[in-house]
Design a binder for these strands. Structure first.
Lengths: 216, 216
DNA sequence: ATGGATTGCTTGTGATCACAAATCCGCTCA
DNA sequence: TGAGCGGATTTGTGATCACAAGCAATCCAT
């Protein structure tokens, strides 16, 4: 029997490090829509050659986090209103299902953790910190969905988040008077009550909420 | 004004050609689950160097069509029953929505085209041709979903198909007595009648049908 | 002064190479 | 007979280079 087959603490591959860094920045809205990226630029920024930069970018393009022109230039996506509506509908479909599957396994410790995260969100809103808001909001949802024990669905949901990242920043950034997340309280209340229809409605409302900002 | 800015008929990039070829083979079940692939092997098979082969493989891994071990070895995925259930549930969620959105735009020519495809499926079943069955079955669904005018959703659905490709082959391959697709007739009938609830049920049934083969 | 061609720089693509790690094979020894 | 071990080979990773296409700023002609 092999004693130590795990490269767990080994240095992660360069392309993976670059991928994770870029992915994090995109998902939490660090990059505005339409931002152009170059392989050599990414390479020098993370002190690697073009090869790992290319692989990280390719992976993000495959996930829809970046778009690639016919000539190979990559940039953050500028989503049309129709595409935003589609992505919101996908979020509603997948996340309602995830929440529903998580409900039977949601015990008190989880609900309290979500309440803590929700308090952090309220802080971010008060400080007009868009990046912190987006990041903590995603953490709120992910905390719940992890309990669904459905990794493929969660991966799909994260892919959708990733695609909306730059646009979310643009939306929340231009927003002046933001109210604390009202639907998060409904989600927590439904979890407490074990109310599945109420939970589905609350999640759907929370996810679809951002759409109304498009009309502004 | 530039007269001819399109590289439409230009030679597609090598990595893209390799990607499409591999993707097609995976989606229609040419490769069994657990099949190992090597970059140099792919490169020599398609007469390219390792670089395009690596990019094609990376892209497929990002889409879940291939799995990558911690040491970087790639192979077609061997799905657990839990994962298959998840993917089937995702298909049900997304494809029911796609069908629902396509329904108002489904005119007679489309329905007739689907009926033609369905006849081809029956032939494939009669000849025990698993690859042809899978390919034509996907064409049946894609023909309908294209009418939904929802490219992001369709891309998600195709990603799920891709992940199930090798497993589908294993499932249909071991199947002896196959009946022609019963639910496809229900789908067509619901389209004709403009019956949205019936369409949703028929699509959900058709998508979930394959799950029963797991119990065998 | 303005429109259009052209030159030079930037950028992505693909090939090749060096290297380290993992895998696989046969061998040895208990 | 079988488990552990050794080296040879295979394999992925990352860097570098040559090349062609793209893009932009410039320059010239009208």
């Amino acid at each position: 029997m092999i004693l130590n087959p795990r490269p767990a603490d080994a240095a992660p591959a360069a392309h993976d490090r670059v991928y994770r860094a870029l992915r994090g920045r995109i998902m939490q809205g660090d990059l505005p829509p339409g931002e152009g990226l170059t392989l050599r630029g990414i390479g020098s920024e993370y002190e690697v050659s073009m090869t790992p930069a290319r692989e990280a970018v390719r992976r993000l393009v495959a996930e829809g986090a970046l778009t690639m022109s016919s000539s190979g230039r990559v940039s953050t996506p500028e989503l049309s209103n129709e595409r935003i509506e589609e992505l919101a509908a996908l979020r509603a479909l997948i996340e309602v299902e995830l929440a529903s599957r998580a409900l039977p396994r949601a015990h008190m410790a989880l609900i309290e953790r979500m309440q803590t995260i929700n308090a952090t969100i309220a802080e971010a809103v008060a400080h007009r910190d868009a990046a912190s808001y987006i990041r903590t909001n995603l953490e709120f949802h992910r905390t719940l969905y992890l309990r669904a024990q459905a990794p493929a669905m969660l991966a799909m949901a994260e892919t959708v988040w990733l695609q909306m990242g730059p646009t979310m920043r643009a939306l929340y950034g231009r927003l002046r008077k933001t109210e604390p997340p009202q639907f998060h309280r409904l989600i927590i209340a439904a979890l407490r009550a074990g109310d599945e229809p109420g939970l589905r409605l609350a999640v759907r409302s929370d996810v679809t909420q951002g759409l109304r900002m498009l009309a502004s």
